[in-house]
């Protein structure tokens, strides 16, 4: 995938069974986590640059930072409630959220550039509001992809309590991402 970056997009977005199996197998978890992290960093760059040259890193930090901050809780609560995943597997699982969200921002980058260029500082809705909506939509897509991936392999969700851990963890990610967006001044 490193030799063919377009493959990363395919695997992360479309080949959910393969992605879920790779995370569950734990054979190449570090490589997978590295690829997902790289995907997050690179795919979020265009959107970041549209927000401003000095802000190019903010989208990657928004998604990557938020899931990394929540990673320990996923691992610890998961372990207590029946999951046998190693930390690096949980890392890869978390980075699915960030990488999918980043890939969505890659698609949204031309759109947000256009909105920035054509929407004046509106009194009710401006380009900043539209950008927040797109960033939220991208995060929602990432969380949905995590749910779909986790549901594909029994090792990732071994019991009912693991599902609840995942749901609660996603709520935590949303909360942290909101705070992160405020801290990064992405909410306008």
């Amino acid at each position: 995938m490193l030799r063919r970056p377009a493959r990363a997009l395919e695997v992360v977005l479309a080949e959910r069974p393969r992605l879920a199996a790779s995370i569950a197998a734990a054979d190449h978890s570090w490589q997978l986590a590295g690829i997902l992290a790289l995907c997050t960093a690179v795919a979020s760059l265009p959107y970041g640059f549209v927000l401003g040259a000095a802000s190019f890193w903010k989208v990657a930090v928004l998604y990557g930072g938020s899931v990394l901050l929540c990673l320990p809780s996923l691992h610890v609560f998961g372990a207590y409630l029946g999951s046998h995943l190693q930390p690096v597997q949980n890392l890869a699982l978390s980075l699915v959220v960030a990488s999918v969200a980043a890939l969505f921002t890659l698609g949204f980058a031309p759109v947000v550039w256009f909105l920035e260029a054509t929407m004046a500082q509106g009194d009710w809705i401006d380009a900043g509001d539209a950008s927040v909506a797109l960033l939220a939509g991208a995060l929602a897509a990432g969380l949905a992809q995590l749910t779909r991936c986790a549901g594909l392999d029994r090792l990732l969700l071994p019991c009912r309590s693991s599902r609840w851990v995942l749901v609660a963890w996603q709520a935590l990610v949303v909360f942290v991402a909101l705070r992160m967006a405020r801290a990064l001044d992405l909410l306008g």
């Binding site: 377009a6 997009l9 395919e10 977005l13 479309a14 999918v100 890939l103 969505f104 890659l106 698609g107 949204f108 980058a109 031309p110 759109v111 256009f114 897509a141 992809q145």
Partner: peptide, 21 residues
């Protein structure tokens, strides 16, 4: 069409349509 081109591809792949770019 141009502005939505990349996003359309990302959406199609995300929604499970086996389409090339």
């Amino acid at each position: 069409a141009v502005l939505c081109a990349v996003a359309c591809f990302v959406l199609a792949r995300f929604l499970g349509a086996p389409l090339r770019c």
